[in-house]
Design a protein around this nucleic acid. Structure first.
Lengths: 323, 323
DNA sequence: CCGCTATGTGTTATCGGTTTCATATACGCC
DNA sequence: GGCGTATATGAAACCGATAACACATAGCGG
């Protein structure tokens, strides 16, 4: 069943059928004739043929570092909640934190001729910039700031800063910080810098070195908490780059009979479910992950429609959560 | 840059270039000539045009109820880990637990002419069966058993049965069960039935009624635990259909100063990170979610290659986890 | 009543490949 | 040498839509 068959059955030309589906000018009479045939046959135009001719795939490509993660899961759900209402579909690629793959998938999307790309990024290398520059379609970056590109990101720095200040307000003096890799500019560098600047502003510049870097897993949080405690005697507050790490820290503290919050106050960041099920619950920071996904698609849609977008950078707020 | 341009530059026909990319018979000389031109120009055949002609999109559609969920996230990662190594791409749709949407997306995939579909399902309605029957491409179902279809699922029943038995072995007598909706045959019905049969086999058939149904959230687990405790006085063990619910239960118990595990032993199912960060950790069941995703894609690939698949149903094992 | 624009409609080229078909050449064998 | 078979190759049809173009008709102002 192709457009020509339908045209014959309705006694019109194939162009008329095409116009029927694309809001072209068409007399009432023919519209009715075509509608009847379409209903009878259940005919739907071939997406492939349309794509070949129009160069529009109605697909957007989304690249994420992983998907089994609370924060990224929320971003993806935000993206899909908007896409669901549109005629667009989503191609998803997961890089498993491999920057090489990130570049590969962007190229694959290029070949597939997706109409646009959303990149949930962690680090940027020269290779990234090169591939991004060559992409002939609009891109929106989520979670990181990259100069010259449309991006939606979080105020990691101030959130971390405020969180650290809060620890001082609660009377904690000897803070430690469990960090993510510095090459991750947002979750790694910015959050750590917030901690550093806050302790400096409080006149405790010596705390800046009270840090250890962990991976984004509970197990790593557990292990690195041990290292941090060994390194910094007398710690009474622990701030972590993510809730996952903080949950690992809680495990460690409990096993080693260090009382939370009496002896040690613990905070994570991300406001995940996990932060609420430890005992006691973590102090944490709510970043609007789902919202960032939503905004990213909306920006992308604007780019797709108008070829340009006034708001190029969106920094989202945060909220400290104490249960 | 299309195939004709390349052909001209290499001094051959467009058919020769097509054969070059499709392992057709071609003389060394021409192969070399084409290779040079392709390298110089960076030419890549248009996926759209290929698709139009061959009817193969090299895309598979994946439908999931949600993505910000530990178990489903793992399934999706399993799927992608295999897809990454192939030339296939993944179209992802999220139904937000709306069976209506499930049907919609299957149709959308149909139109997009994906080569195959993986359906991570929760419930099956008559509408599901109808749409599935009309799908002209292979389908693999994950997480549920559906007669007549290729499916990969878990032994929910025996896992839940064994878990319940374990509670008796640990000397618990008055058990309660926090269930999922019964129309979810796997997580809802099968797990509950495992509980029921186990308590009956232990001569405690009266416990069968000690149940309340909760949603897949921490908050719901919290709330329904209250209801369950009000309903069943003297409970000393609580088994939940999922870790998420169980984490909510832990919250409730802690707030109401009910000692875990002394007064109340608590178990979840799913072996998520969340089960390991409550204090104390939950008893839980490990289902191989990632593996189920992997197997599903592998079955689908087999179906794509041979049009048929010998192993139609795969039931995966489980392992009870006590930390 | 003429010419101009606006609208409706069909014809046909086009998007960029793959595949069929016909033809050409080389090879092996009787 | 003749014939069957295997391999190499290009011309052209084809996949199923859209869009440029041509043309017809209608409405309208002068």
């Amino acid at each position: 069943m192709n457009i020509v068959d339908i045209a014959k059955m309705a006694g019109v030309s194939s162009a008329a059928v095409s116009r029927y589906f694309n809001n072209g000018h068409l007399s009432e009479k023919k519209q009715e004739a075509i509608r009847r045939v379409v209903e009878e046959t259940g005919y739907r135009p071939s997406v492939q043929a349309q794509t070949l001719r129009t160069k529009k795939t109605k697909m957007i490509g989304v690249v994420v570092p992983k998907v089994a993660s609370a924060s990224i899961g929320k971003i993806v759900e935000g993206i899909l909640s908007i896409l669901n209402e549109s005629e667009y579909q989503m191609l998803l690629a997961v890089t498993q934190n491999n920057p090489q793959k990130e570049v590969e998938y962007l190229s694959a999307f290029h070949e597939r001729q997706v109409d646009g790309v959303i990149l949930v990024a962690t680090v940027f290398t020269a290779a990234h910039r090169r591939v991004l520059k060559e992409l002939p379609v609009p891109v929106v970056i989520v979670g990181q700031y990259l100069s010259g590109y449309c991006c939606v990101f979080h105020d990691d720095y101030h959130a971390s800063y405020d969180l650290t200040k809060l620890f001082f307000e609660k009377g904690r003096k000897k803070l430690g910080y469990l960090s993510a890799l510095q090459k991750d500019k947002a979750v790694g560098a910015a959050r750590y810098k917030g901690f550093c600047d806050a302790v400096r502003d409080m006149g405790c510049a010596d705390l800046v070195g009270n840090t250890v870097t962990a991976a984004f897993t509970v197990a790593s949080g557990y292990e690195k908490t041990g290292e941090l405690l060994a390194k910094c005697a007398g710690m009474d507050g622990l701030i972590c780059a993510t809730d996952t790490m903080a949950a690992g820290a809680m495990q460690y503290l409990q096993e080693h009979h260090i009382a939370v919050p009496d002896t040690m106050l613990v905070a994570g960041q991300g406001d995940s479910d996990m932060a609420r099920v430890t005992a006691p619950p973590l102090i944490t920071v709510h970043y609007s992950y789902e919202k960032s996904g939503v905004l990213a698609v909306q920006m992308l849609m604007e780019l797709l429609l108008h070829e340009e977008c006034v708001t190029k950078e969106v920094k989202l707020g945060y909220r400290i959560v104490e249960l």
